[in-house]
Design a protein around this nucleic acid. Structure first.
Lengths: 242, 242
DNA sequence: CACTTCATATAGCGTTGCTATAGGTGCTAG
DNA sequence: CTAGCACCTATAGCAACGCTATATGAAGTG
């Protein structure tokens, strides 16, 4: 009973729904919970929003405003591709900060029915990619690039949400992000080739690592560790393996 | 009333649930629909599966068998990265062929609770990427690569499912797929990126050796030595990021 | 005041997932 | 043959769900 104030019932319903949605640990949120917290009765909800989904859409719209605001604040950095990077990070952070709301926005998938918010987010990203295209930095049409990047962005965010907070590894995000941006950008040479680079064995890999380590004296290991490490490498690389 | 045959009620329930799930155009499937189609009553369902979710999990498990079978059939092509490509395509095709089942498997996301099927799919992909790592074709540890690729794979599939069938553009899939595979592969030169050029050969070799050692159970080192050795390798192969 | 319009409440419908309880079935043991 | 014992299924019903037909109040307009 927190919203019995003087606010109009419509606003109270919106806030109650948003709060319950944010704190519902995965479980569903019922209209009775919402109306009780808002201090109104059922018909009021349906009078203003027509539907439970209508109410949720309204909450999502408010959440989307916040999301878009975050995107626009970061926008004018001059380098479009860098802005895309920030859009990606903002997207992920929004999803992790408000997972329940994010799931209502991007996770409530049904076949052949595309949530409006997805189209909006896609348009936002396409708009940004358009600047990159004008600058000759794009390899593919902005629309395709936006769809592809957004798909990966949503996929990564969903996967991160399913992980327990302390174990979340944001490197998954940055790595995927850079992979996607790199793939659509044009000013980088991509002499690709699906050929293999010769099959390696334990011995070959050990020899390569041995040589590389001695050449670049990595600082990931202490000197004493490195000495023992190299000795073991030598033992492996000089033995005849299976 | 299609399953009133002589099959055991458990099987009838599974088939009825699978059929209703496959034909439910986005809408929810109720236990009463399932039990009626299966020709049994409610307690039978709960006796065998405990829960509605338990029944769905069983359906998903069956669907996952099919999914895995598709993955394994394509597996032994000799070129691990090409196999990853086929795994990706098989994943997308599975999602588009049975969208409802796919959504139950990969779309039923709740925060901090990861469906078992995701972990399985991740393990399957990691297993395949391990071969690529042994061949020195990987730029990042197989686990991270698998998570990243799978996240993008799910994201793309979900996005394609939301589109109406005639408008589906599979180029979105192939483009994202190749971008992800390219990003984790090592045998391609990546001159000039947003940051410095690709990983050094030390990291590539360490990743390859790490995978090879875990796969071949080398007896060149004692178990305690091996443990420390692998720990160092892990330290090297997961360092030197952005 | 009469009248319309908008907003909220009362009460209840049909459906949902699920279960307490009881009854039927096929088995092995005596 | 029958007694007992698991195992499986059915009857009936609960609480909660989304939603609505209907009625009541408040506000503005002639």
């Amino acid at each position: 009973m927190s919203f019995d104030g003087q606010l109009p019932p419509k606003t109270r319903l919106l806030r109650a729904a948003a709060e319950l949605l944010a704190n519902s640990a995965g479980g569903a949120v019922s209209t009775r919970q919402i109306t009780q917290l808002a201090g109104v009765t059922a018909p009021t909800l349906y009078h203003h929003f027509g539907d439970k989904e209508g109410l949720f859409d309204a909450v999502v719209a408010a959440g989307f405003e916040e999301y878009v605001a975050g995107e626009r604040d970061f926008a004018p950095s001059g380098q479009p591709l860098e802005d895309i990077r920030r859009m990606w990070d903002n997207h992920v952070q929004f999803g992790l900060k408000q997972p329940e709301l994010y799931l209502v926005m991007f996770g409530n998938i049904r076949p052949e029915s595309r949530p409006a918010v997805v189209a909006d987010a896609e348009g936002l990203m396409e708009e940004m990619l358009n600047k990159a295209a004008v600058a000759g930095q794009l390899n593919v049409p902005p629309r395709e690039a936006a769809r592809s990047i957004l798909a990966a962005n949503v996929g990564v965010t969903l996967m991160l949400i399913t992980e327990k907070a302390p174990e979340r590894n944001l490197e998954l995000s940055t790595m995927t992000r850079d992979a996607m941006i790199f793939a659509v950008s044009s000013d980088q040479a991509k002499n690709s080739g699906p050929e293999e680079s010769g099959k390696s064995s334990v011995v070959v890999a050990a020899i390569a690592l041995n040589a590389a380590l001695q050449a670049s004296h990595s600082d990931q290991l202490s000197s004493s560790e490195l000495k023992l490490f190299l000795e073991w490498l030598h033992r492996i690389s000089t033995s005849s393996t299976s």
